[in-house]
């Protein structure tokens, strides 16, 4: 079984976001991590590989700055890594790079995260699948593979759905699929010698661009209500905020 796990490099979840001139993230002091959902996908791929055999390749589209996190994915247990040396300017561009590599190398399962926590697009997985004309199971909370068939559970509006699909396919991972692992010392040592191949991008268009950023408007100061006068809160919610 050949897995491809797509990882994106994002600010740590506790980052206080600041923008430089409203043109983009101010990276000063920002710690970058593997997108949490991608780690969930990676761990599930490793679990299945350990049980059934196969290989797990991680793929990142982006600059050399992400290499520490690519090495971390290798330390967690991926066999090898590919970095497409290009700015990940929009989801379509990224998906074109991933689909191109996937077509060349032929993977059985391509996994991404449910969404990246920087751009929150939830786009790349479906785009890869459409570019390759294969199915995509999005927001999957479970993944099991037996032979050439996979059974997944996914979130749908109003509940969950269990589906089956033949290989190859794309899935985007949601919490529940696995519990991320912390790399151990041996993993960290061996990661240094695992192959990390850097390839140049194929030509692809960017069809969207984030042109300006700003912080959400600051909240007005919180109105405090005495715990001895709880009904005042209900009055305010009814008459002032008009939400009940």
């Amino acid at each position: 079984m050949k897995f491809l796990v797509c990882i994106s490099n994002v600010p740590d979840t506790t980052t206080k976001i600041a923008f430089s001139d409203n043109k983009g993230l101010n990276p000063a002091g920002v710690q970058f991590i593997i997108n949490p959902y991608d780690e969930i996908a990676l761990t599930r791929a490793l679990e299945i590989k350990e049980a059934a055999g196969g290989t797990v390749t991680v793929l990142h589209v982006g600059g050399a700055g992400a290499e520490p996190n690519i090495r971390k994915a290798l330390a967690i247990g991926a066999d090898d890594a590919i970095r497409v040396n290009a700015e990940p300017t929009d989801a379509y561009f990224v998906a074109c790079q991933i689909a191109d590599i996937a077509k060349k190398n032929g993977y059985d399962v391509i996994l991404t995260g449910r969404e990246s926590i920087d751009y929150n697009g939830a786009q790349v997985a479906g785009m890869i699948a459409e570019l390759m004309n294969i199915p995509c199971i999005s927001v999957a909370t479970k993944l099991d593979i037996a032979g050439t068939e996979a059974v997944l559970e996914r979130e749908i509006d109003g509940g969950k759905e269990v589906v089956s699909v033949a290989l190859p396919f794309v899935a985007s991972a949601q919490k529940g699929m696995s519990e991320p692992r912390i790399p151990n010392m041996r993993g960290i040592m061996t990661a240094r010698t695992k192959p990390l191949q850097v390839v140049e991008p194929v030509a692809a268009d960017c069809i969207t661009a984030s042109t300006a950023y700003e912080l959400p408007p600051a909240k007005q100061a919180c109105k405090m209500i005495s715990p001895d006068n709880v009904s005042e809160l209900v009055d305010l919610l009814h008459n002032e905020a008009k939400v009940i």
């Binding site: 976001i17 926590i117 661009a209 700003e214 959400p216």
Partner: peptide
């Protein structure tokens, strides 16, 4: 963007 910590204007070309 940034899980609600920022807002961004996106242009479609």
């Amino acid at each position: 963007c940034y899980s609600g910590k920022g807002l961004t204007d996106v242009v479609i070309s």
